[in-house]
Each structure stands twice: as structure tokens, then as C-alpha cells.
Design a binder for these strands. Structure first.
Lengths: 280, 280
DNA sequence: TGAATAGTGTCTGTGAGACAATATTAT
DNA sequence: ATAATATTGTCTCACAGACACTATTCA
């Protein structure tokens, strides 16, 4: 091992003496907030299907938190990056490859895992749910998200049709000079670890980025109507948008096709595609 | 250790068998991009002192990268968060406590450290350099940053008066749908590890946030003129701003005091203070 | 025919960019 | 008096919010 008194004169010598195992150090997991938008068919044939913002959860089948739901994730191996670990886990749970992933935050509260000190490098992932609806791993399930914001409190309900999970997270500004928040878990029935924090962080990130990036198109199929796209914006932002304003905003991001969607009891809608930027 | 065949029936049983040491896992460091703005006195008594954007570096006195400069940082202990580790390191290097810190990104390329697999949870820190000018640790030094952006290439020069360090980093869009970049180190004389990436990431983060948060006030003293504040904006953004526009933008963020700064060969300037928001 | 969504036109106010003009100092 | 910075006024243009209006389908 490294001798602190010894002046090493070459990197080789140093590395030979270097023994990582002497350091008692944190473990690292990679967790993924995989978001999508689910459709629920309306009984009225004329109405559009209602959309829900949804997140993928996995039921834990062992301790700790056995029986509780959590974000898909796992330990980061010594020969993979945290992003590679995230992709490996996602492929196992959803059979999806090439998912859009963006690093969210590294959560490392000392007691966030009862087993030992475990840090979580958390990623936000976005998918078009229609691409994978039936290929889920048996323990995984999509939960529709309903959020009520009451001052600094987020009251969140997750619903997969069978189970309802609830948690309340308090949003506290870390520094008054910036927009970074600390999230405190006030109430949490059935989610494992500090994953409510990760879910809220992911939702906030997406809410922000939808306004100044093209990130939303990772959740869309190849062709979509502007009405559908607007619905997606609306469930993510949690508010209605005005049609003309919306169309102005996304006008530069989409291309009109010659395809038309008919079938609803109303004026048919032109299908659009994402307009990729030249820079790529 | 955990027996995969065994169905554990209580968390206690599980934890008893759980032995972290069986996992070969990455080590974790915490590194800090500490930014500030330095002043260089002009020979002309009428002119304002020239401002430089600067970063704190530490000279490595052991392998790996012995003799090279790097960001202050160190291994994260088992009983501290990465942010606590960052504060511990900063206190040792600069004698400063209560520094503004914001988590930047977790860098974890597999070979970023020649010793072994080491991930770096990187923080951006901001300080008012006047508060600490002389209390640096002997191995630490402030480097003025000069950046030339040539298409997707950043040509960066760091200068502490004695040494000039240079590196070139290529900025590659990770996904065309968002604003996340991958940085590739094209040229790097004298900085250790992948720290050029961290420095660029920090600069980009600050450039962005200066426009929609009050983050810049972490680099200012209690009283400042609007001219000084504008200079700080200008060195961070790397461009000149128009006076009236600038004043409009920051009007809501500052409070006029009855103090006045005289002494330059020109109209004296009113001193302002940061206007903290009510929400805090 | 009418409920429902698709899509467009246009007014208004806000705010940034640009530039001109005035104010005040130490030497 | 002058060089330098401090500070304000105002015009224009782009754009988001708001609302009204027209278009088109299918049970």
C-alpha cells in the first residue's frame, strides 16, 4: 500500500503500491427515472384520449424495502460507467435499447440505503410508451403521476391501475441565489429509498427543459398531430396551453407531412414529424 | 454474504448476511471548480481595473500526475456526503467556509484515473476573491481563464502569473434533442485527470445560470457598483453588454444604497447591494 | 346537425437591442 | 478642459398572451 513517508519517483512505483481496498468507501448505484406519457381511451368517440404523465417502477422482491416499489436501478460495476449501468438495467426491465438518458443528479445522503453507504447516480430517461407497451419485465409497471402543488409541498399520487402510491415531498430552496432545491420526504407510503426525491427532480428537470430544448420528441412516435404534442406538453407542464401560442413555439421544431389522421368525429389533423437540426 | 437462493423473511436477516466487500466497486472523489473574478489594476488611474474570470487549482505533489495542476478534491469518506467532502477540501485549501456550492456533474469514465476506477462528483463553487486573497494553502493558486471558442472547440488558457496552462476541449452534442454536451479533451498540457471537462462544464453552467438566477452575487462583496457587476457579467459571458439593457435586467435584483464610490477620474458611482428575495 | 377538435388572424403589452444624450469626477 | 465612467431616455422590433374566428369531420 501507499507509504505516505515515501517520495515516489515514478508513476509505476506509485501504482504498484496503491491498494484501493484499504479505503472504506461508498458503493454506487445507477437509478433511472424513466418517464413516458400514457393514453387512456375516452368513452366518447369524439374526444381525444386522456393523457397521463407516467413513470416506470419496479417492485422489489428482496430486502431492503421488500415489496415496495422503486426506480429501476442497480449497482455500477467496476467496468461500466453509471450510464452504461443504467442502460443495462433498462434493457433488462423494458427490453428497450437506445433510450434517451440524461444524468440528473447524484444523491448521496449518508443513510439513504439501510444496507450501507450507497450513492445513487440518477438518470432521467424518456421513451415513447407505444414502442414498448407489452415488453415489460414482470416486476415492472408504469404508474400514472398526479401532482398537486401546495406552496412548497408536492403531493404526488402514483397509480398503475391496481395500486395507488402516495408521497409528499417538501421543496426547499438550497440557496436563495439559485434554483437548486433540497427535497425533504414528508410522507412516503410505499416507495423505496429516497426515490421520491429523484422522481420530483426528474419532473422538474423535464418541465424546465421542455421549454428550451427538443427533449419532448424523445417521448413521441415518428408521426404525431400537433394536438397530441400539445397534450404531452400540457401533462408535463401541468397546465393548459393556448393553441396559437403553442403552434408558434413548436413551428420551428416540426415538419408538416402529407399524412392526415382521420377517424375522430371532428376535423382531421395533419401529422407532423420532428425537425432535426442541421447542427447534428 | 447474501445467498441468492435464500428467501429472506426479515430485513434484519438480510442485513446480517449482507457483506459490502464482496462487490468490486468504484471509488468516489469529490472535486470542486471554484470560480471567482480577479482584478488587475490598470496603469491609467481613470480606468476601471480589468477583470478576469478565474479558477482555483492545486499542484499535485504525488502520483498520479505528480507536478500537474488539478481541481481541489479528494476521496469521499464513508461518513460524509460528497458535498461535505467538497467543503472539507475547500476549507483546507482556502480557509473559506460557507462557500456557495452546486453539484455540477458526476464524471465516471472508466479510465479517468490511472490508479483504479474512480468516479468524481464535481461541484461548482463561487466566491468573492477579495474575501480570501491571502489565505490560500501553499499548493493552491488562482488561474485567470482566457477562452477562445472556435466552432465546437474551446481553446482555454490558464495563467497564474508564473505558469501558463493550455488545453483544448471539443464540445459534442450528446443528443440532438437537448443541450447536454460530451466534452472530449483534444489537447492538454498540464492539467491532471479529466479536469478540463469539469472546468468547461462549470463555465457553461455559470454562463447559463447567470441569466436566470442570482448566482452571480456569490462572487460579489456586500457593496458593489453596477459597473463592477456588469464587468463580472461580461467576463463570465465573454462579451460586452449594453449598459441600459444590463441595468434593466438587474434592476430588480439590487438595492441602491446611500454610499457612493469616488476616486476614479470620472463621475462617481452609487454602491448597490444584493436584494434578497422575500421567499427566503 | 352538432359536438368536438384543427387551425388561423390579429390586437396588445412586455421586454430586449440599439443608440443617443446627459452627468460628474480627478487630474 | 478632458478622458473616462455613470446614468437615463426612447425608438424599434420580436414575441408571448389573449381571444375571436373559421374549418372539418362522423355518428
Amino acid at each position: 500500500m501507499i507509504n505516505m513517508e515515501k517520495e515516489y519517483t515514478s508513476e509505476e512505483d506509485f501504482l504498484k503500491d496503491y491498494d484501493v481496498s484499504i479505503f472504506d468507501r461508498p458503493s454506487v448505484t445507477s437509478d433511472i427515472c424513466l418517464f413516458s406519457v400514457s393514453s387512456e381511451n375516452q368513452n366518447n368517440y369524439r374526444k381525444l384520449s386522456k393523457k397521463y404523465f407516467s413513470v416506470l417502477l419496479v417492485k422489489r422482491n428482496n430486502y431492503p424495502y421488500k415489496g415496495k416499489w422503486c426506480l429501476p436501478g442497480g449497482f455500477v460495476g467496476i467496468k461500466e460507467t453509471s450510464e452504461e449501468a443504467a442502460r443495462r438495467v433498462l434493457a433488462a426491465e423494458t427490453n428497450l435499447h437506445n433510450v434517451f438518458l440524461e444524468q440528473l443528479y447524484t444523491f448521496d445522503d449518508i443513510n439513504r440505503d439501510p444496507r450501507c453507504r450507497v450513492m445513487s447516480v440518477t438518470y432521467m430517461g424518456l421513451v415513447d410508451k407505444n414502442k414498448l407497451d407489452d415488453s415489460l419485465f414482470e416486476n415492472a409497471s408504469w404508474f400514472n403521476i398526479t401532482t398537486l402543488e401546495d406552496n412548497d409541498y408536492y403531493h404526488v399520487t402514483l397509480d398503475n391501475g391496481n395500486e395507488q402510491l402516495k408521497f409528499v415531498v417538501k421543496k426547499v430552496l438550497k440557496e436563495e441565489t439559485t434554483d437548486r432545491y433540497k427535497f425533504e420526504i414528508i410522507e412516503n407510503d410505499s416507495l423505496a429509498f429516497d426515490h421520491p426525491k429523484a422522481i420530483i427532480s426528474g419532473m422538474e428537470r423535464l418541465k424546465n427543459k421542455i421549454n428550451y430544448t427538443d427533449i419532448v420528441f424523445n417521448m413521441m412516435g415518428e408521426y404525431f398531430t400537433l394536438g397530441e404534442l400539445q397534450q404531452v406538453y400540457e401533462v408535463i407542464l401541468g397546465k393548459k396551453l393556448l393553441d396559437p401560442a403553442f403552434r408558434r413555439i413548436i413551428a420551428g421544431k416540426v415538419i408538416k407531412t402529407d399524412k392526415i389522421q382521420t377517424g375522430g368525429g371532428h376535423r382531421p389533423s395533419v401529422l407532423f414529424t420532428y425537425k432535426r437540426n442541421k447542427e447534428s
